[in-house]
């Protein structure tokens, strides 16, 4: 229920630059996914917003208020840590009650019980409520730490790879649940993940970080269809965008050094010959590993294709992306 804005935020740890001049406005009620490889500064961004770390420079506002002087408790944010930090001396139930019993919230016990019960239900941990927090599997611990955020009704949720150690089915369930909880509460969400499906299905906005810089910020669709660089383009899309020298097909624009081809940029059956190296059937999708003029390419074809290894298929680019030598988009 609040807009979050970062203005020129920088943070270094000694020589390490964790964030470099990041400016970002997260609209009220939006679900923002931060993408980026390890060390890109995703966790650091969340810690800045939560108040656990203070920026070296720049300004952080939540709902229009400068946060500089406020403690984490005063910021009204809930956070799920990357290393699930359950209080090991408490039971699962006590862990979930902990934020509600804080001197700031002082929730009545009846309300606590109702809330904890409901959240445990959603996260499928009701049967473990009386376990010690240490007597849980990794996935269960992770769900309890999500629960500790969900029992509250904060202005902003901060979640650092909250679904990373869950199995595929649970992850799919919780994706839907988290999204609907966030949408219902209207809270703003900042969410870190490496999982593209999470990014594509949950996000209203995606921020792409690289080495502490914000490369691109926009809707998942914008980033997918209109990436500013090779780097941003390769964050989204399965299989990943193929990057080849710009001139392999001819017709490259001025200054282009490489061509980026997503599967939908590759029309099959027309153009020049390529060799089918491998046919990978994934059930709903069939991937073709092609060799085109000594370059490897991966694309998608009809799920029931008759193509097999060693066949030849003609391909032709259709409105692909072009990038310059530094990786920036030129067309």
């Amino acid at each position: 229920m609040a807009e979050v804005s970062l203005t020129g935020v920088s943070k270094s740890f000694g020589e390490d630059i964790a964030l470099a001049d990041v400016s970002l406005t997260i609209p009220d009620g939006s679900f923002v996914v931060l993408l980026g490889p390890t060390g890109a500064g995703k966790t650091t961004t969340l810690r800045m917003v939560s108040g656990l770390d203070t920026p070296d420079a720049g300004r952080i506002e939540i709902a229009g208020r400068d946060m500089a002087a406020l403690t984490p408790a005063q910021r009204d944010v809930a956070m799920v840590f990357q290393q699930y930090s359950l209080y090991p001396h408490l039971s699962v139930r006590q862990n979930l009650e902990f934020p509600l019993k804080s001197p700031i919230l002082k929730t009545p016990q009846a309300q606590i019980d109702a809330k904890v019960g409901a959240v445990a239900e959603v996260l499928q941990i009701s049967h473990k409520l009386d376990n010690k927090a240490t007597a849980l599997s990794g996935g269960e611990m992770q769900r309890v730490s999500i629960g500790r955020a969900l029992v509250r009704d904060p202005q902003v949720y901060l979640m650092d790879e909250p679904l990373s150690s869950l199995d595929a089915k649970l992850r799919a369930d919780l994706r839907v649940e988290l999204k609907s909880i966030q949408a219902d509460s209207g809270a703003t969400m900042l969410y870190v993940t490496h999982d593209q499906i999470e990014a594509m299905t949950m996000a209203t906005h995606v921020g792409v970080l690289d080495e502490g810089r914000l490369i691109q910020f926009g809707t998942p669709r914008e980033i997918y269809e209109n990436p500013v660089s090779i780097y941003a383009a390769s964050r989204l899309g399965q299989p990943r965008m193929n990057v080849l020298p710009a001139d392999v097909f001819g017709g490259a624009p001025q200054g282009a050094a490489s061509i980026g081809l997503r599967p939908e940029h590759i029309q099959q059956g027309e153009g020049e010959d390529s060799l089918v190296k491998r046919v990978e059937r994934l059930g709903d999708q069939t991937r073709l590993h092609l060799v085109f003029k000594d370059h490897d390419l991966i694309t998608v074809t009809d799920a029931h294709t008759d193509l097999k290894d060693g066949d030849t298929v003609k391909i032709r680019p259709v409105s692909p992306h072009y990038f310059d030598a530094a990786g920036a988009r030129v067309a």
Binding site: S50, G51, L52, T71, P72, A73, V77, A78, M79, F81, Q83, S85, Y87, P88, H89, F98, P99, S102, P103, I104, L105, R148, R152
Partner: peptide
């Protein structure tokens, strides 16, 4: 992280020390 979690959960530094660090 334990204390940090408590700080975010709405506790002061002293309360976090008392409720989270001390038992451990």
């Amino acid at each position: 992280e334990y204390e940090e979690a408590a700080l975010i959960d709405g506790y002061t530094r002293f309360q976090a020390f008392y409720k989270v660090v001390l038992p451990q």
